[in-house]
């Protein structure tokens, strides 16, 4: 068995161990921690489609995370106040509906954004995706209808049929379920003809074009898929906090998502999960020891970039056979 597979099995065990530990030691806070971990990992799995498979370094994925969050928040507030969103279109408190809407909306916005951004490459791509995200960020800050700078609170978490999402454990399991679905999707995608074309576009787009496949279309599709997954994660994140604010759209979050992927291992199936696990534990662990945890987090990240190329999975399983 490949060492990466062993590592992935270990990651699954770690994810399962957290809620078990929470119940054993009666520390409900661990459940929140695990939920945060799962949601960040889910968002990063989304980014990993564009960044890991397609080599598209998007510095604007916070846009999709925030869009998902605002979809959840706005629909929930309208349902709570019994105000229709548009005449004849009510809000909703049903998670599956919210998920579908946030995926569609994120993908719909990713299409024009990607179509323009993909005209550029390299640093210009990084910067133009950042610019688009900043547009949406400033729009959310200065648009007063849904809270503007103060954000939008909703008091009751949205519901999933047959699950009491108000309890931390069932909500965590819902998040785990979506994360597992996203990982399965990523794995299928990676090994599909489409995934092969996408990875070929990253490695050598001239050759891909020479065999008759337009890299642009492949990349744009990947960008939209990637946005949709990150959008769902945003909807869950809003549900976790029962609050959405423009900070979900900030460039810091885009940076953090990139950090999660590099920390775990770029383009690896479980890279985002490993990255999110380490990140959340560092945040929690260092935060418990020192108020200055960000200083040490910075040092650790710096150490990973300089000395552990290939991220945590790279350390454990070696370099991928074909990059």
């Amino acid at each position: 068995m490949a060492r990466e597979t062993v590592f992935n099995g270990l990651m699954i065990l770690v994810l399962a161990a957290i809620p078990a530990a929470a119940l054993l030691f009666e520390e409900p806070f661990y459940l929140t921690l695990a939920t945060r971990l799962a949601i960040l990992a889910l968002a990063a799995v989304g980014l990993n489609v564009a960044l890991g498979l397609g080599g598209l370094v998007s510095f604007g994925h916070a846009a999709f995370f925030g869009i998902g969050g605002y979809v959840a928040g706005i629909l929930a507030v309208h349902a709570f106040n019994m105000e229709p969103l548009l005449p004849g279109l009510p809000g909703t408190k049903s998670m599956p509906v919210i998920w579908v809407v946030s995926m569609l909306l994120a993908a719909l916005i990713a299409l024009p954004m990607g179509a323009i951004s993909l005209r550029t490459s390299g640093v210009y791509f990084i910067m133009i995706t950042l610019a688009f995200a900043q547009m949406i960020y400033y729009f959310a800050i200065s648009w007063p209808a849904y809270g503007g700078e103060d954000g939008l609170s909703f008091y009751v978490r949205n519901g999933f049929p047959g699950v009491n999402t108000l309890q931390p454990l069932p909500f965590l399991l819902v998040c785990y379920g979506l994360l597992a679905a996203a990982l399965l999707f990523f794995w299928r995608l990676q090994h599909s003809p489409f995934g092969a074309a996408l990875q070929a576009a990253r490695q050598n787009d001239v050759r891909l074009a020479a065999v008759g496949i337009r890299p642009f279309k492949i990349r744009l599709t990947a960008f939209a898929l990637s946005a949709a997954i990150t959008g769902v994660a945003g909807a869950l994140f809003a549900d976790l906090n029962r609050f959405v604010s423009p900070s979900m759209l900030s460039w810091h979050l885009s940076g953090e998502l990139i950090v999660l992927i590099i920390l775990g291992g770029v383009g690896r199936l479980f890279g985002p999960v490993a990255g999110a696990t380490v990140y959340v534990f560092l945040e929690y662990g260092l935060g418990g020891i020192t108020e200055r945890w960000q200083f040490f987090l910075g040092l650790i990240l710096l150490g990973v970039v300089l000395f552990a190329r290939g991220g945590i999975i790279g350390l454990f399983a070696g370099r991928p056979r074909h990059g």
Partner: peptide, 20 residues
């Protein structure tokens, strides 16, 4: 290194500088 590593390393530097 590629731009990805540069983004991450200098992002880490921001954390260090700000907190420092």
């Amino acid at each position: 290194r590629d731009h990805l590593d540069q983004v991450l390393a200098t992002f880490a530097l921001i954390l260090i500088f700000s907190e420092g």
